[in-house]
């Protein structure tokens, strides 16, 4: 499931580790082509770690303008820029932000500065990312148990919504134009909610609980545009959903989950064909059924 992992990879935390441990092996291998990159990837990663440790992205600003990898393609050139750049900027700025007020929260799944700092120390190999467990704890929601029970996921999301809804309603009712813009127009709360659920889904996949992962992912999707990548519907959400479906027997349905990504990721064609073959093989001996309406 390397490709599923790769879909999620750009949102994983390659957070600060002590510089003396570098270079360390990554859980998710980089594409082989990157090994031929003009600039060694390990060197770029070291720059990231240094920026996060020092909370100073000055050096990284300069490096970001240089593509990690470039190749001739037809009459033009295809370039791959640093996919972790903005994440590092976000983390470095988050730890410098004030502990109070929207600046500490905006564009982060973390509710407090302390959570963000704890998150920044999380190992790159740990999938529980997005401040989900810290956010649940602060909202008084019990963390999930270690069982692959979809109803447990539904109950947790219901508890989370019960904590968020009154607060959001009251905030919007306050009439503060900033609050209305952030929480009503930009839908930051929904975005955070989706991010937490996605983090929980990833953690469940990591722990081989695909049914519960699927429930978390399903409940994270913004159904006002269910087939579109959007600020709420993170691309990793569709990848996670597809993997959870494929791992719980729903191979054909996993193709539905992947479909929104294929518009944006032409490299998914191979995976989609493979998954399609898998879905066909699973149903090869069944009698197909069809009905009207």
């Amino acid at each position: 499931m390397l490709v599923f992992a790769a879909l999620n990879q750009h949102d994983k935390k390659d957070a600060a580790r002590p510089a003396d441990t570098l270079p360390a092996p990554l859980t998710i291998p980089f594409p082989a082509a990157l090994a031929r990159a003009a600039e060694p990837v390990q060197q770029r990663l070291a720059a990231h770690h240094a920026a996060r440790d020092a909370r100073d992205v000055g050096n990284l600003w300069g490096l970001a303008a240089t593509p990690l990898w470039a190749e001739a393609l037809g009459s033009g050139e295809r370039r791959l820029y640093d996919p972790f750049f903005y994440r590092t900027v976000q983390l470095a700025l988050a730890v410098d932000a004030p502990a109070e007020g929207p600046q500490a929260l905006v564009f982060s799944g973390c509710l407090t500065l302390q959570d963000a700092q704890a998150e920044a120390q999380t190992s790159i190999t740990t999938p529980e990312l997005g401040c989900a467990l810290a956010a649940l704890a602060r909202l008084g929601v019990a963390p999930p148990q270690d069982v692959d029970d979809p109803q447990a996921a539904s109950d947790l999301v219901a508890a989370l919504d019960a904590a968020l809804d009154p607060w959001l309603r009251a905030t919007l009712a306050s009439g503060d134009p900033g609050a209305v813009e952030l929480f009503g127009d930009l839908r930051l709360v929904e975005r955070c909610r989706a991010r937490w659920l996605l983090a929980l889904a990833r953690a469940d996949l990591h722990a081989d609980r695909p049914r519960r992962a699927l429930t978390f992912a399903r409940l994270a999707v913004d159904l006002s545009a269910p087939r579109e990548v959007s600020p709420v519907n993170h691309p990793g959400l569709f990848g996670t959903m597809a993997e959870a479906q494929a791992r719980s027997g729903y191979h054909r349905e996993a193709l539905d989950a992947l479909a929104p990504l294929s518009l944006h990721r032409p490299d998914l064609v191979g995976l989609t064909e493979l998954l399609g073959d898998w879905a066909i093989l699973v149903g090869l001996d069944r009698h197909g059924e069809s009905k009207e309406n």
Binding site: E253, G283, R286, H287, G288, E289, S290, K291, E292, N293
Partner: peptide, 9 residues
């Protein structure tokens, strides 16, 4: 409208 199971036969 037609509806099909996962075999789409």
């Amino acid at each position: 409208q037609w509806s099909f199971d996962r075999n789409e036969d």
